[in-house]
């Protein structure tokens, strides 16, 4: 069931990114100028943050396989806390964009940027909630399912970040 969800989510974000490429084809200069306003360094830091959080989630699954419940919970807590750091950095990024006068309706680029990254941020929030739930219901099956969702969030960002921030 989780793999169906992962496939569906990848399809949704894939379609959004293809739509982004299509819109960019209509106005490459406008998109490139708008992209220059993004904080690419913050995006890179956020990639490192999510991948590190993913490591702790994967280690939690391993600990759960070995039956180490305390260690599993500790590693899931670390994964969730590092994941929350992603939202803090994203919050600073959004604040800077809004302070610069950029919002959902500023340009086609900004509409797509806020929709795609905002939708991903909502997945991060859900992912943290799911990690918190499997900290309580911590049998192996639940931990595997919860961390699979978290890795999906990770995977989506691995593809979204270069497409929105770096390709120009």
């Amino acid at each position: 069931m989780m793999w169906l969800l992962i496939a569906a989510e990848l399809l949704v974000f894939g379609a959004a990114l293809l739509g982004y490429a299509g819109a960019r084809a209509l106005d490459p200069a406008g998109f490139a100028a708008a992209q220059d306003g993004l904080d690419r360094l913050a995006g890179t830091v956020n990639t490192a943050i999510l991948l590190t959080s993913g490591l702790f989630a994967a280690l939690a699954t391993e600990a759960s396989r070995r039956g180490e419940r305390g260690r599993t919970r500790l590693l899931l807590t670390a994964a969730a806390m590092i994941g929350a750091l992603f939202l803090v950095v994203k919050g600073f990024e959004y604040s800077a964009e809004i302070a610069a006068g950029n919002g959902l309706s500023t340009s086609t680029f900004h509409t797509l940027y806020f929709l795609i990254t905002g939708f991903h941020a909502i997945h991060v929030i859900f992912g943290i909630l799911i990690l918190a739930i499997v900290m309580v219901f911590d049998d192996l099956e639940h931990v595997e399912t919860g961390t699979a969702f978290w890795h999906m969030v990770d995977l989506i960002w691995v593809v979204v970040f270069p497409c929105l921030y770096l390709l120009r």
Binding site: L10, G14, L18, R24, A25, P28, V159, C163, L167
Partner: peptide
């Protein structure tokens, strides 16, 4: 999964490269 992601990224990269 890798093939689907690679195809998506390839379409985006080629579309950017063509208008570059």
């Amino acid at each position: 999964f890798t093939g689907s992601l690679a195809a998506t990224v390839a379409v985006i990269v080629v579309s950017f490269a063509l208008l570059h």
